[in-house]
Design a protein around this nucleic acid. Structure first.
Lengths: 346, 346
DNA sequence: GCTTGCGTTGGTATCGGTACCATGGTTCCC
DNA sequence: GGGAACCATGGTACCGATACCAACGCAAGC
């Protein structure tokens, strides 16, 4: 009764700890931040008081004072795509041991939503910002540039980065796809990506298809089978729908899909219709997600190491935040062709 | 030059806005928090100043003062499993429009890591905590109970919840799996889950297998084909490895796997070995992830609505945070059997 | 005309930490 | 033996917002 609304007592503060340990709050702060600064004996007393009270420091208050929040904003189109989930995991793995907490924002591939999310992130004063892609609204670009903290654009290779970049060229991925499928003997080559519905666009996927188109053009092949069809990227159903549409239009000897997720959907659609892969149609995906390695036939793909993008971004940021000099402005992690069972020379 | 380390100027504060608009900081605060409290004319001037300066409020400072941070901690085993990614999306969708920011922590199915993550979350003073499962270390349970904010345990149905719960009974999922496979005419029934390596355990998966075992026992069937084999849950390879092991041991007529991810891996392993599904072996999964709907044959599964778990949790929390009374302590969302093509009566 | 009350605005204290500077006590060394 | 150098600790002023209360002007009410 006396305690009132029972579970809602307030957590102990540093002041409480300091009183119990018989020292000043500053000494508690030092004990926790840099134990080497206090004497062995004092440290023991403080830590005992911390344990007894179950004290957990308030990093919000600490951040206000020190101007370092320990947040790293990570803005991705979706977490449902394992590529981005892996990048998030890689970044977390690299930065959490050093006390940084990722703050994840999801845009759903929408440019306007990205702006909203960036604003929400900025209100938390992150120590660094990681954002997918290089295509932003002017307002978003401005927000990022003025944020006053390191900004890393990932999963792309911007010509004019806001600040830093870690990724690869999506356009060159598309060109490699063209060369690869041509090299495998195909001449009727298709490219499948999602529809653009207003503000919702997969810019990087479009860039890969642009590379494919140019690659085909340079080889003197027609690019009339490049389709933007079906719902937004990141859903298996997209690939199935797009492949169905392609077959309706006469099919192709080889198909490049903007993501392995779609490629898997396409593969299954072929199976449902009795279209043999790779005999009747070859399928090449992008991203190298685990499903592609497990499914039958295994998916040929242009692989990027999503986890490594997270790692490298994390290490770059740690260097930047430690004030190291001579850190690269852009890291190109490249990509590599992995031919498995959904393609075969003919 | 004069500007110094150029991009690192400090963002404008409410004080800057107030000076530009010719009002007090309090009026700026009110304009942003509850515009109805200021006159039309003042509001216009303040908003103009906000826009001109590109002011973004510091919610860390605001939280310190108001004791409401706007954070909701969400602690999950992994984001790579689409089930949890969907729950995260559902929770975000429900709470972000009201200004709450999810703070995602990933435990990797480790009990000790969960404690570390909970502590990290608590240091951000979230307004609410959402945590997967009901099995925690005593220290974690204590931290949660003393946090002084609403706690929701999800994806389970705890007998003694820390506070609230939104989920379903994993044990009953297992029993339904047993009844289902028996009803389809199988007598040699297997259950496959991951190994427990020390501190890393999938408690909910184990619970589903326990339900299966009891279900088999009650029907007088042997439970000697319940295997814990292969790497941790959440990887497709797990299902493939476990299925390979099962086949090595003589196989089964029907198999229940603790997750659709594993079930898909198992399905592909069968394909590689020329084992026909469902003719030679029936496969039943759990979770109803999209791959299972797209693959061939389509996966039979016991479905739960992961997104809805996030939604309902979000709505419950909004009610709790608004101080509504008469909110349920536990919400059981249940599950349902979805028979597709990987099972068939024999 | 003076009180009452509302709508609008401002002042001050405070949230829980950390930066920065000051202090007292030792040790070291020429 | 006296001062520099250092170690361990404390005091004070913030960080950037909001809660709370006071005060102002003006209209309504008696």
């Amino acid at each position: 009764m006396a305690e009132g609304r029972s579970p809602f007592r307030r957590p102990p503060t540093m002041r409480d700890v300091s009183r119990l340990a018989g020292v000043s709050p500053m000494t508690v702060s030092r004990t926790l931040a840099d134990p080497g600064l206090v004497s062995q004996e004092t440290r023991a007393r403080v830590l005992a008081a911390v344990a007894q009270l179950g004290y957990v420091p308030d990093r919000g208050a600490g951040g206000l004072s020190s101007r370092r929040t320990g947040f790293v904003a990570l803005i991705v189109p979706t977490l449902t795509n394992p590529n981005f989930a892996d990048t998030a995991a890689g970044l977390t793995q690299a930065m959490r041991p050093r006390g940084y907490q990722p703050l994840i924002g999801v845009t759903g591939y929408s440019v306007s939503e990205e702006e909203v999310v960036v604003r929400a992130m900025l209100s938390r004063r992150p120590d660094a910002i990681v954002v997918s892609g290089m295509q932003h609204s002017p307002a978003t670009r401005d927000l990022l540039a003025r944020a006053g903290v390191p900004v890393v654009e990932i999963w792309d290779r911007p010509k004019a980065p806001v600040d830093r970049a870690v990724g690869f060229s999506n356009y060159e991925v598309g060109r490699l796809a063209a060369r690869t499928l041509i090299g495998l003997g195909a001449t009727r080559i298709a490219g499948l990506g999602p529809e653009r519905t207003g503000d919702v666009r997969d810019f990087r996927g479009e860039e890969r298809l642009r590379g494919l188109r140019d690659g085909l053009g340079q080889a003197g092949l027609p690019d009339d089978r490049i389709l933007h069809h079906g719902r937004a990227a990141g859903a298996f159903a997209h690939g199935a729908e797009a492949m169905a549409e392609l077959l309706r239009r006469g099919g192709a000897e080889a198909v490049f899909l903007v993501s392995d997720i779609s490629a898997f959907g396409a593969l299954m659609e072929c199976r449902r219709r009795g279209v043999q892969v790779p005999e009747d149609v070859q399928i090449l995906g992008f991203g190298d997600i685990e499903i592609g390695r497990q499914c039958v036939p295994r998916l040929s793909t242009i692989a990027v190491d999503a986890t490594e993008i997270g790692h490298r971004t994390g290490r770059l940021l740690l260097g930047l935040l430690d004030g190291e000099a001579d850190l690269p402005n852009a890291i190109d992690l490249g990509f590599r062709l992995v031919l498995r069972d959904s393609t075969a020379p003919r």
